[in-house]
């Protein structure tokens, strides 16, 4: 069997592939390329967001996806070819990896083939009956979608007296900050910054959820603001300190009984949501800020697309027939 002998020889010779030595110079070049592509992919995503904000041109969604994925593919090829030395290696290893990506492709493609073609005959088969799930049997969800249950839980927290007083104070501070921001008095700008930071801190989710306020919010806030005022005073900014102290006095002057009656949970919720969404501007930069504006992508889903944001009010849209 002469041809088989050749085979055996062939794979005996094949060893020489494996002992390739990739020098640090080449490795550094590859690293530089990888870092460059990382910057590129981030910049690509940022520019898209910027263009949308500044010029108002919204690129189709696939531009973003294809751009990011192509760059990721190039990066991964670089890593595999040089860092993992596939380029110098026995080709069988490359073949194994290609097979694996092929199998992965089959997996994604055929799963998608089913899940994306459900509404072909009857439109109503494509979407879930209740967007976000039925919540049936989920502890604490009370047969609602999880997002809805989280909202309900949070509103219950907002209805508690301690939290409510805390947020009334926060609103007062925010009002003072807004007033200071619009005033042209001396030191108003500094005072506005201090007050806004204080209000933001108070309305942060951490303050409400993670460290729930204790009783006597009013006194705590007044003490904090006065401390801030003192700090400003020691820095020699007496005008600003006076504005902050005035804010502290106005917080002290809140009639809680009356305020509780007039300040609804819904209003508080909306105000906190605005802070949370606005917060991303500062925390997460411009890139993600628009992420919260719920722009429905053009008609991709049937039921889910529009039922989702208002599920709490509309009784789950299409779902009402099949579920209680």
């Amino acid at each position: 069997m002469s041809h088989s002998a050749q085979h055996a020889d062939a794979h005996d010779h094949g060893e020489s592939h494996s002992h390739a030595i990739v020098g640090p110079g080449l490795l550094r070049t590859v690293l530089a390329f990888l870092l460059f592509f990382t910057v590129l992919t981030v910049a690509f995503a940022q520019i898209e967001v910027y263009v949308e904000h500044a010029v108002g041109i919204r690129l189709p969604w696939w531009v973003n996806v294809i751009g990011a994925m192509s760059i990721a593919t190039v990066k991964s090829v670089l890593v595999m070819a040089y860092f993992m030395q596939l380029r110098y290696d026995n080709p069988i290893n490359t073949l194994a990896m290609l097979f694996c990506f092929f199998a992965l492709g089959l997996f994604l493609m055929f799963t998608g083939l089913d899940l994306f073609s459900r509404g072909m005959v009857y439109d109503f088969k494509s979407g879930p009956v209740i967007a976000g799930g039925t919540g049936a049997g989920v502890p604490g969800a009370n047969n609602q979608p999880l997002t809805q249950a989280a909202k309900v839980r949070f509103k219950e927290r907002l209805a508690e007296n301690n939290t409510r007083e805390w947020l009334i104070c926060a609103a007062k501070v925010e009002d003072a900050a807004n007033a200071a921001a619009h005033s042209k008095d001396a030191g108003a700008a500094e005072a506005a910054a201090v007050l806004a930071a204080q209000a933001h801190h108070m309305m942060d989710l951490h303050a409400v959820m993670v460290h729930p306020p204790e009783a006597g919010a009013q006194a705590v806030v007044v003490r904090d603001l006065e401390a801030q005022a003192n700090t400003l005073r020691t820095k020699g900014n007496a005008a600003a300190a006076e504005l902050v102290a005035a804010a502290a006095r106005s917080v002290q002057g809140i009639d809680m009984a009356q305020a509780r009656a007039s300040y609804s949970v819904e209003a508080m919720f909306d105000r906190l949501a605005a802070v949370a969404h606005g917060g991303h501007h500062e925390d997460h930069g411009a890139a993600s800020s628009s992420g919260n504006a719920s722009r429905a992508r053009t008609g991709v889903t049937g039921v889910t697309g529009h039922a989702a944001p208002h599920a709490n009010e509309s009784g789950h849209g299409h779902g009402s027939e099949a579920t209680p």
Partner: peptide, 13 residues
């Protein structure tokens, strides 16, 4: 199940 973020806009968050 552990989801507890109150400001979700999309039901599938």
């Amino acid at each position: 199940s552990m989801f507890d973020y109150p400001f979700a806009e999309s039901a599938h968050l």
